[in-house]
């Protein structure tokens, strides 16, 4: 059995004196798209921080591609592209310069043509490519950051609310993009509040509550992939 791109078992993470994540287990297979849902403050972003090694874990195991993040955070970060919850770019740089800079920082520079293709893929208007990020709308920033994450070409992507700020058409494009990633074998862990979007793309949907995955739904091979009514009532009961 190949090493999973992400393996989490009984994860415990505390922030301050609060136990935010408490026994969370979650594993991804290559190419799998997992949507993590939950109320505000449920611990979704915290889980991503633990995967990236920003926060120490107080219990459980957590590996990325078989590597324990506590032992070797850099090896983990090499395999992970991360889209933060609040995207911020260098305002005085253009979209292209931002992407170039962050790619170089990550040690994976890309050609101009590749970056162009990345921008095209996320639907960032060509006029914006060489414009300063200071003038960008929230959606344009989001698209730039998504393009950046995709250009990293890592086996695992951690996306914190990737569709926030995207118009419906762009969100739709983004979901198609995720599907192609999945087909290429990239595993995606996506935090989202967009139930419909999740149902549209995810292979599995998990509901985080009291620090662990309280409910989980798996897509059926036939349409409709998820029972939306079941999802809705699941969320309603989680509040």
């Amino acid at each position: 059995m190949p090493t999973p791109p992400l393996f989490i078992a009984d994860l415990v993470v505390e922030r301050g004196d609060k136990r935010i994540v408490d026994g969370l287990s979650l594993s991804l297979a290559p190419g799998e798209i997992y949507a993590l849902l939950g109320g505000n403050g449920a611990g979704k972003s915290t889980t991503l921080f633990a995967i990236l090694g920003f926060l120490e874990r107080q219990g459980g195991s957590l590996t990325v591609g078989g590597v324990d993040v506590a032992a070797n955070p850099d090896a983990v970060r090499r395999q992970v592209a991360y889209l933060p919850e609040n995207v911020a770019l260098y305002d005085h740089l253009t979209a292209r310069e931002n992407v170039d800079y962050f790619l170089k920082v990550a040690g994976c520079p890309r050609s101009r043509a590749d970056v162009d293709a990345g921008f095209e893929g996320v639907g960032l208007a060509a006029a914006a490519w060489d414009e300063r990020a200071a003038r960008f709308s929230k959606g344009m920033r989001q698209k730039t950051a998504i393009a950046l994450a995709l250009l990293r070409e890592t086996p695992l992507m951690l996306l914190d609310e990737p569709t926030s700020g995207l118009d419906p058409a762009a969100a739709g494009d983004f979901h198609r993009l995720l599907e192609t990633l999945g087909r290429r074998g990239v595993a995606v862990l996506m935090v989202t509040h967009d139930l419909l979007g999740a149902a549209d793309t995810a292979d599995r949907i998990g509901l985080i509550q009291a620090g662990r995955i309280a409910r989980e739904w798996t897509a059926s091979p036939t349409v409709p992939r998820f029972d939306l009514n079941a999802l809705h009532s699941g969320f309603a009961s989680a509040r």
Binding site: F49, L52, F54, D74, A75, R77, R78, V80, Y82, P84, N86, V87, A88, L89, Y90, D91, F102, V105, A106, G107, A145
Partner: peptide
């Protein structure tokens, strides 16, 4: 404060490379 810290820290060996 600009909100970029996490994105930068998420890159491998940020201390050495950034």
């Amino acid at each position: 404060e600009a909100g970029r810290l996490y994105a930068l820290q998420a890159t491998p060996a940020a201390r050495r490379h950034i």
